[in-house]
Every structure is written in structure tokens, then in C-alpha cells.
Amino acid sequence: MPARNGSVLFEQLALPLLPSLYSHAFWLSRNQEDAEDIVQETISKALRAFDSFQSGTNFRAWIFRILRNTFLTSRAAIATSRTVFMEDHVDLFDVSDPSPTPEDHLLRLDNHAALTEALERLHPQLREVLLLCEIEELKYKEIAVVLDIPIGTVMSRISRARRTLYAQLSQQVGSLL
């Protein structure tokens, strides 16, 4: 595509996503300045690589993937020790099954503070997949593109993230009783 047309198209596609990109960068880096740097660099990289973007494919997933790769190679990622691979640390994600009943779940979910704390305590990579699913409302296949993992792994990570939340909520509620 001609450079000017490409630039205009890029702006049309990227402009509505700026708040989402910033929010996600903030969740990843947990720092306002780092989030801005990550988004700025993401825009720069995406603009340069826009010729490689295939028209008709998912721009949102494409640019979120660039954002994530930018974060992973940033100082912020090293500071938050995010560049470990989940599959290398399976033990981190083993969920001890407290065997709560479904009724227990329903009772605990109205505790907003407990859920917020559980989300904060969630391992960053499990929190990230939930963010993409719940906040950015990406489909599993889009999340697979962003995280560069098979769709089956996306499904198991989301499931594991929710089970971990349940387990943490159970522990929190249990400690209050």
C-alpha cells in the first residue's frame, strides 16, 4: 500500500485502541511512566512493521502482541520478573483444590475487596490472560496470537486462572471465619 495511505490506515486502526493499549501496558508494568514508554515504543514498532500486517487479519491482536513483546524486552519486565515461561514453572500454577461447593463460590463473589486482592495476588501470567479475556474481551484465538501460544493453552490458562481465584478466595474467606 502507498506510504501515505498506510499511515492513514494505521492511524484509523490504532487510534481507538490507544486507551486499551495504555491500560494493558499499565497492568503489565504497574507503572505510569513505563506504561507510556511501552505504548510509545509499541506505536513506533507497529508503524514501522505495518507493511507486514496483512490486511483483513486482526489488527487488535497484532498490535497487542507487539505491545506484549515490547514489554517483555523492557526494563519494566525484568523488574517485575515477567520473562519466565509458565511451562517452565508448572508448580507455580498448581491449584490446591479446596473443594468448595458451587454455593460457596456464589457467596464469596460479592466480596469485591477480596476479589481485588485475589487478582493482585494472581501470578502475572495468569492475570494477563484474564485481562485479555475479561477487559479487552479478546477471543481465545486472538489471545493465542497475542501470547504466541496454542489456543488449547489459552483455554487451560484461563481455566487455571479462575480456579486459582476460587482457591484464593476460599483461603481469604476461610481466614476470616
Binding site: 490507544l18 486507551p19 495504555y22 491500560s23 499499565f26 497492568w27 505510569q32 506504561a35 507510556e36 505504548v39 458451587p102 463460590h105 456464589l106 463473589l109 460479592d110 469485591h112 476479589l115 481485588t116 487478582l119 484474564l130 485481562l131 475479561e134 477487559i135 479462575r162 481465584l165 476460587y166
Partner: peptide, 20 residues
């Protein structure tokens, strides 16, 4: 049902950070 409740509650609990 509890999974749907968790999904809904998670959406509410996750804060969206708006850029200044």
C-alpha cells in the same frame, strides 16, 4: 452459574487505567 458470576465479578474488579 458460579463461573458466570466470577466472570462478571472479575470484569468489575479489574480496573481499566485511562491515560492522562
Amino acid at each position: 452459574i458460579s463461573a458466570m458470576q466470577l466472570k462478571s465479578a472479575t470484569k468489575r474488579a479489574f480496573k481499566r487505567f485511562a491515560p492522562p
